[in-house]
């Protein structure tokens, strides 16, 4: 039985080690400060700045969109619809189902909607698709904490004459702030790491997008496309991207752990 634990720890270390072992040597200043020269598939010069910036645009955009839609819904479920527990549990069930839907399905769906409206692959299409994909994660992560806020706080706020929305966004949001930040981090990690949903919707280019209507490179696809190239230098770009993505994910993991453990000073217990 101890072997199974050792195996899990070993595999995680092995993954991180192998990615860094292969990727870190290629991770030069040129790599993170330049876009690929001469085409991402054949050009030997340049770096992956296009993918870094593209991924950050995409992940920030999708996370913000998901937050703007998700936070109000999590509040709605626990404050406005407090009386309708069955309905709210139904919504929770549905969100859990959506959480399980593979990202490739969101990608395929997003793509067919794009064709229907005649929209080309673009940063915006990617942001919308990815935000739908991370929305259930965002809502459920916030909901799990909001539902455990003591009802006394709701009553206290309401008895001062606040309406439900004021209670939600001026009181509950503060009470749950560390959980909301954690939910944002988890969703951001999902958004920046997913390849299947951006494959159809965001496209890939060598340049850094200057508007949301342009296609954009992303780190996962920078790995995926450049890894299949026969040219060593291009493959190095893929491994460097893998190292960058892993670093970002590890930072997010550590940061969200620190935040969720940190004492939230205004929170009432």
């Amino acid at each position: 039985m101890q072997i199974s634990i050792a195996l899990i720890v070993l595999v995680l270390s092995l993954i991180v080690f192998s990615i860094f072992y292969r990727g870190l040597p290629s991770l030069t200043w040129e790599m993170v400060s330049q876009t690929p020269k001469g085409g991402y598939y054949f050009g030997k010069e340049g770096g992956v700045l296009n993918a870094i910036i593209g991924s950050l645009y995409l992940a920030f955009g999708a996370t913000i969109l998901a937050l703007v839609m998700g936070l109000p819904v999590a509040m709605l479920m626990n404050i406005h619809l407090r009386k309708f527990k069955k309905l709210v549990n139904g919504v929770r069930f549905l969100l859990d189902l959506l959480w399980g839907v593979p990202s490739i399905v969101y990608g395929a769906f997003g793509f067919s909607v794009m064709i229907f409206f005649g929209v080309k692959t673009s940063l915006l299409a990617g942001i919308i698709t990815v935000s739908l994909f991370i929305l259930p994660i965002m809502i459920r992560a916030i909901d799990e904490v909001v539902r455990n806020v003591p009802v006394g706080l709701l009553e206290a706020s309401m008895s001062l004459g606040s309406n439900k929305s004021q209670t939600a966004f001026m009181v509950y949001v503060r009470q749950c702030s560390s959980a909301i930040v954690t939910a944002i981090m988890i969703s951001f990690g999902r958004a920046i790491g997913d390849a299947a949903s951006v494959l159809f919707t965001t496209g890939y280019t060598d340049s850094i997008p200057t508007s949301v209507m342009q296609p954009s490179a992303t780190l996962p696809l920078s790995i995926f496309f450049q890894l299949s190239s026969p040219i060593q230098e291009v493959q190095n770009r893929a491994y460097a991207s893998a190292a960058i993505l892993t670093i970002i994910i590890l930072i997010i993991s550590v940061l969200s752990r620190v935040i969720s453990n940190k004492y939230n000073k205004n929170k009432i217990s």
């Binding site: 003591p150 006394g152 706080l153 206290a156 309401m158 008895s159 001062l160 004459g161 205004n266 009432i268």
Partner: peptide
């Protein structure tokens, strides 16, 4: 309702200060 509730201050069994300063 907020207008009605405002007319009545509430003190509950245990204090629930708002999560602020």
């Amino acid at each position: 309702l907020p207008g009605i509730r405002k007319k009545m201050g509430l003190l509950s069994q245990r204090p629930y200060p708002l999560p602020m300063n």
